[in-house]
Amino acid sequence: MIPYYTENVGELPFFEVEHTADWALRINAPNMESMLLNAAIGMYQLMEVKTGNQKENDQSIEIKAHDREELLVSWLEELLFNLETREVVLDINDIEMINEYSVKAQVIARPVKSMEKQIKAVTYHGLQIEQTENGIRATVVFDV
């Protein structure tokens, strides 16, 4: 998976920000599809998850929510659930918004080779998807 960069050079697609007890990830993206893609890659990187090129299966996932913040949290929760119960990373092939608060993605489930750290949950703490000059921005706090 390759993160989607915004036009503005220097605005990273995601980076870790200071949080005393847990992890916080700032995500920048031009639109909601890229926000979900960048957040997924950022979360996997925080956990230092490694996979090979092996493929368990191709699948389609669909997430529906009541607003964009809930969509972002539910999307990341879906990836975490698959990581814990099936021990797979969902490698995103294609991602498309169905409507403002629903997304559909084509993914390849790749078995995990190693993982250094755990995320217990994705929180709503202070979560707001804000409009920026070049797109949108959010900061997600993970309970670790």
Binding site: H66, E70, V73, S74, F81, A121, V122, Y124, H125, G126
Partner: peptide, 27 residues
Amino acid sequence: GHQVCSDYVRELQGAVRRYGIQLPDRE
């Protein structure tokens, strides 16, 4: 436990609207 909490944090997003509870943080 992580899943129980995640499930109810999501479910209660609607409850606060239904009960008219104003909160400074969705968490």
